[in-house]
């Protein structure tokens, strides 16, 4: 074990899993040697990847057995195709069957366009898998801080998880910046204004409004520690949880519905100098956020 910090953002799917689980505890299901590739990319003369952009398997975190999945954001932007999606669906069904918690390292632009119909239904199957596992008492912890962020259907799956751990780089949204700009114009959304994109969709904003639960530094060990803590929380998804989430999300619209920028929301939260937030180091931000932020807790 080295003491050098490893960036979660820069790491690949396999490196993230290696950093999360106990040494030598990971066993992959349908690994790359099986060559279970996308049957659809060849239609577009596009290269395939042997694991179709997702690694799924079992391992242990702090001695506790868990299922783990990690998307590879560098392969087709981590987009969900038929095989990619089915691997995660199968894992979630297994989690429900054997009552074992699941950790999902998201890194995705959403549905893979070249197999859009298959990917779209895969997202629906995954969401059902997450929710049914959770209703059976399984925790599903989502980690977001990769290159591709967590967009489109990925954002919807994340919204079904029990706990979300994010770094500043962890952007969560449904429609991507470029797509909003293309459809609604640059006045509505300037996708090239990087600081605007990050303060609207990034990990800090999501933490402050209660869209994410734990804010960590861009460091694989920080993600690992936060995951261990999340796996110790009581699992729960029932009528009370969703009633509380309904109230939480209604309150968000009431409280912030008129805001036109993230900084307006941060000001409404009571933060004196909202414009200092984007440049704030992770630990300082986490402390400040703890004081002012909205929380999801048992309302997710």
């Amino acid at each position: 074990m080295s003491n050098t910090r490893q960036s979660w953002y820069e790491a690949g799917a396999r490196e993230r899993i290696a950093a999360l689980v106990d040494p030598a505890s990971f066993a992959e299901f349908i690994g790359p040697e099986r060559r279970e590739i996308s049957p659809h990319l060849s239609i577009f003369d596009l290269p395939t990847q042997f694991d179709d952009g997702i690694v799924v398997g079992c391992g242990a975190i702090g001695g506790t057995p868990v299922f783990v999945a990690a998307q590879e954001g560098r392969f087709m932007g981590g987009a969900v195709g038929e095989v990619h999606g089915a691997k995660l669906t199968g894992l979630l069904r297994a989690a429900k069957a054997v009552a074992r918690d699941v950790v999902i390292a998201f890194d995705t632009g959403g549905v893979r366009l070249q197999e859009a119909n298959a990917g779209e239904i895969a997202i629906a199957e995954i969401m059902r898998g997450v929710v049914e596992a959770r209703m059976a008492g399984v925790r599903v912890v989502g980690l977001i801080g990769g290159r591709a962020g967590c967009y489109g259907g990925g954002g919807l799956i994340a919204g079904c998880c029990s706990t979300l751990i994010v770094s500043e780089q962890g952007r969560i949204s449904v429609t991507g910046p470029e797509v909003i700009e293309t459809n609604k114009g640059v006045e509505e959304f300037d996708s090239r204004d990087r600081s605007f994109v990050w303060r609207t969709m990034g990990g800090k904003h999501r933490t402050l409004i209660g869209g994410a639960d734990v804010f960590v530094e861009d460091d694989t060990m920080a993600f690992r520690d936060a995951t261990r803590a999340a796996l110790a929380r009581a699992p729960k998804l029932d009528g009370n949880t969703l009633a509380a989430e309904q109230a939480r999300l209604e309150r968000r619209i009431t409280r912030f519905g008129e805001a036109s920028d993230a900084t307006d929301i941060w000001q409404l939260l009571g933060i004196d100098d909202p414009w200092a937030i984007p440049d704030m180091p992770a630990t300082g931000f986490a402390t400040l956020a703890d004081t002012y932020r909205e929380r999801a807790d048992d309302a997710r």
Binding site: A158, S173, I180, L237, E245, Q246
Partner: peptide, 20 residues
């Protein structure tokens, strides 16, 4: 597709509807 909907966390609202 709007700035306001994404700012307020549309992914959570859609996921919440599906969960319900």
């Amino acid at each position: 597709m709007s700035r306001r909907d994404e700012l307020l966390g549309l992914s959570e609202y859609l996921a919440h509807l599906a969960k319900s």
